[in-house]
Design a protein around this nucleic acid. Structure first.
Lengths: 164, 164
DNA sequence: TATTGTTATACTCTATAACTATA
DNA sequence: TATAGTTATAGAGTATAACAATA
């Protein structure tokens, strides 16, 4: 079996293999930054798994959603909205256009710019991904617990907005 | 589906005034996965800034900490602990050894393996990074609020551990 | 045969800077 | 001069597969 190592770290809490020496994470174990990264990675990987089942890439999801909700958005606006440089967006849009999910139209009043819209196929794909995302979300909700969810998301939002 | 245009539309010959059209994030705005990613990115970038001031890479921090807290750890154990393939670790360890922060010693009882330890310089660097990390953490704590912190971190841990 | 760590290779995501074509 | 988008290029970070040395 060529699958190499196990993906998950044993964080020393569980009753794992008796032969497994527990790893000491030191102060990392209690720090927000580290646990934020661990949780994000786990979440991303799970969603990645879901969207692979659709034949899609999780990174495309937010882009499709932003185009769908903001029809005619221009690439520069899109790059600002997703916090990436415009040059990072070029290959992404190119891929979506090539695969027939997004169409670009020249803007008459400013012939440097394009407006982006989803095609019918793009809407179909977005719908499939949205369904997968909702399933994923239900999974996260179950772990977080319905009572804590609002406050948890609110804290995440404040972190994203207020970190120095 | 379009949320807004509550401001004047941007179309046609506005004389250079960049009208700030609010972006509609749709369901993304309320989903855990998306906000987890946003918060993690902001946190990582802030810590990245801190560690750049030391001349270090944030990605090295966890590695140094794990070696420090688990002296003599082997590369395979380290890769399992950080959830990465062993081949991903090779260039990292190589870099740390080259810069004199980590030393590798052959294991007598198993001459395929190495044991990793920090050098004095490695301990010094880790101490500096730890100081930066504590500062970063205080920053995060301030945003989260002392009352919510324990529960917040606990939820992150559960997410990392329990996502399918 | 199985495992430790390296190598070769490739893919994703990201950025900076120079470029083009407009404005 | 300034802006929209592309191209060229580079760098991190990650993975799979094949490999040599050793178990």
């Amino acid at each position: 079996m060529r699958k190499s190592d196990s993906k998950k770290a044993d964080r020393g809490g569980g009753s794992g293999e008796a032969t497994m020496k527990p790893i000491d994470f030191g102060p990392l174990a209690t720090w927000v930054g580290f646990n934020l990264r661990m949780a994000q990675e786990a979440s991303f990987q799970a969603f990645s798994h879901h969207s692979a089942a659709i034949g899609e890439n999780p990174g495309r999801f937010a882009t499709l959603m932003l185009i769908a909700r903001n029809p005619g958005i221009r690439q520069t606006e899109l790059s600002a909205a997703s916090g990436r440089d415009k040059s990072s967006l070029t290959p992404v849009v190119e891929d979506l256009v090539r695969r027939g999910l997004v169409e670009r139209k020249r803007v008459d009043s400013d012939r440097r710019a394009y407006r982006l819209n989803l095609t019918a196929a793009g809407r179909k794909t977005l719908a499939l991904m949205t369904r997968a995302a909702r399933k994923h979300e239900r999974n996260l909700d179950r772990i977080i617990g319905p009572r804590d969810k609002k406050r948890f998301v609110d804290t995440l939002k404040r972190l994203a907005a207020e970190i120095e």
